[in-house]
Design a protein around this nucleic acid. Structure first.
Lengths: 128, 128
DNA sequence: TTGTAATATAAGAATTGTCGAATATTCCAA
DNA sequence: TTGGAATATTCGACAATTCTTATATTACAA
């Protein structure tokens, strides 16, 4: 059976199923970057980014090269960029329902944390 | 910023990040199928499949059409098939490390549940 | 109407994912 | 050597997923 293949695919998708990890992949589309550079551009906690990098590493999506003090990361196979490009196309095609989906998510978040919006700095309409 | 776009992409990947849901999408590649048909071919619990279908529905990956007693499902946008096709290519290219990855996963499972193998019926070498 | 088949939803337990804080490791320069 | 910069790992709290069991819902046929 192809259950192993499906487990494999699911695993790759799982690795991609986080906004930060998608951001990392996209940042690496211009070539390799050091972990510090990634942390800076993402503006997130060092440990957190390092953990996300660990996830990408464990699924072999990125390679890392040690150079002195630093560790440089790169995407192993450009096919991953193609996957993201397809997703971009998909998004553009379905932008309307995508917005509704995001709003729905926001609504749920607000129900759980009343009085606090998830991203106070901008509304979705402006963001996209 | 494109944080909304990344949240959207992550959400789609999340929806695809389960072997059963991948199987559902693949089963639907030949055209629409009823929920019952899917349950039969997957050989899984009715409730479980229904929940996975709910996930795919909530992310708008599938459409459903009610006809009498039954509900027929179909994939909304064939672009999703392209994504899976890319993954298949990726897998074929990286089959060696994929195997190692799967074995690694198995090893971890065995550490947690000693004396019980995850899939007693077959080893990975034979499965793929 | 009532019963039954097809499907969905809810509730709860177990597992897994995520994050921040703290700590460890590694490499180099002084 | 020692100190500091860059990165990784560990731990504990919390949130999200997944599964099973039980229960709802819906549409029809008898």
């Amino acid at each position: 059976m192809q259950t192993a293949l499906r487990r494999f695919k699911a695993d790759i998708f799982q690795a991609l199923a986080h906004p930060t990890r998608i951001a990392i992949i996209e940042l690496l589309s211009g070539g390799e970057l050091s972990a510090g550079e990634l942390i800076g551009r993402l503006g997130m906690e060092q440990a957190n980014v390092s953990q996300h990098l660990a996830v990408l590493r464990s699924k072999q999506l990125v390679a890392n090269r040690k150079s002195g003090n630093q560790v440089f990361y790169s995407v192993r196979d450009p096919i991953i960029f193609e996957v993201l490009a397809l997703m971009r196309t998909y998004f553009q095609k379905h932008i309307q329902e995508a917005m509704e989906m995001l709003d729905e998510m926001d609504k749920n978040v607000r129900q759980r944390e009343p009085g606090e919006s998830a991203e106070p700095s901008s509304a979705h309409g402006a963001e996209i």
